[in-house]
Design a protein around this nucleic acid. Structure first.
Lengths: 184, 184
DNA sequence: ATACTATTTGAGTATCTACTCTAATTTGAG
DNA sequence: CTCAAATTAGAGTAGATACTCAAATAGTAT
């Protein structure tokens, strides 16, 4: 893979893989659907990737890296900032949110690598929520803040999960209810 | 299916389905593995079930019903009952809980029929939570109770989702945190 | 016992899966 | 322009999958 054409094809395949996972889940993503979507034949796919699994791992890594809204983690974001960022992420990039949920659901029986990736991302997110909560409610113990943050992030994921079924579901509304009770 | 033999075979198939899902997940559960485990041939399976999907849905529903604190829907279950039943289901039937989440996620892109079933089940559950909450906190408005119930059920699903990735995750602990804030 | 139906058998089908292989084409460095 | 290497085409493989069907067997009401 040293010619420009190969790199472009690779990008198209990864983009198609991501879209397929978002729409049909890991199960519904096949070599055929990826190739059809990318306008490529199996021979080309296997010229660029060793296996379906490798392509999926690569696509998911790209997707999860793209999720983090504040990579420089300045530590100045409030809980509202984080929740609003989450809402915006779910509403504007529903695709990636669905990939995240899809992977999470499938991760239990899939590769440890995927599982680890999702878990690490989750832990990072919980920590930022916990820090923000402590800044807002300095009377809370570290443990209580961690607990509430973990519960809050899981609850937000549950709300997102529900939205994948019911697209009318008002994520913002329930996210704010959750925020209210987390800071009570 | 009116003879005793048929009913017994049906039970064996449902139990094998449950066990296969618990051990190998949805992906690893095939007609062949179910039939081998149940000591039955495909013809018998399809004499009793219309499809693999139907058998799985039935097995999951049986498992959920098995922990229902108020099967007759007499309206006597407390919020604690409902949450404890939820925790029991997730902890004792972890892989079935995963399947439940997975079916819910898959419902978004499958037949409107399955989607409708999942949504109706969700709404029924939310209603029971809302009723129980109102019995406990009669000062809440109907709307507030509905909102809290919807948030609580989604949050519980989020906690369950997280447990499918991290099996060490203490569902009971966070479920009780969620219950505390829902009744606050 | 008879007769009717439920149940089981088990080989068989169509379709999908990830993946391979060889030949043709395209690319771009020298 | 040349030519070796990268890329693509596209038919094809082996194996798994959910599911079917006609015939054999077993269960039960009368």
């Amino acid at each position: 893979m040293r010619y420009k054409a190969g790199l472009e094809t690779r990008d198209r395949i990864l983009e198609s893989t991501r879209a397929q996972i978002a729409e049909f889940g890991l199960e519904g993503t096949t070599i055929k659907t990826i190739c059809d979507d990318a306008g490529v034949l199996p021979g080309s796919f296997y010229n660029l990737f060793d296996s379906k699994e490798q392509a999926i791992l690569t696509a998911v890594r790209v997707a999860i890296d793209a999720v983090d809204p504040d990579p420089d983690h300045a530590g100045t974001d409030t809980l509202d900032d984080l929740i609003n960022a989450y809402i915006r992420f779910v509403e504007e990039q529903g695709d990636l949110a669905r990939v995240y949920i899809r992977i999470a659901v499938a991760a239990g029986h899939s590769s440890p690598e995927l599982k680890g990736r999702v878990l690490r991302h989750h832990e990072g997110r919980v920590k930022r929520f916990s820090d923000a909560l402590l800044r807002e409610r300095s009377d809370l113990s570290q443990e209580e803040a961690d607990n509430r943050a973990e519960a809050l992030v899981s609850a937000l994921n549950g709300v997102t999960l529900h939205r994948t079924i019911d697209t009318e579901f008002d994520v913002a509304h329930f996210a704010r209810i959750l925020k209210r009770v987390a800071t009570a």
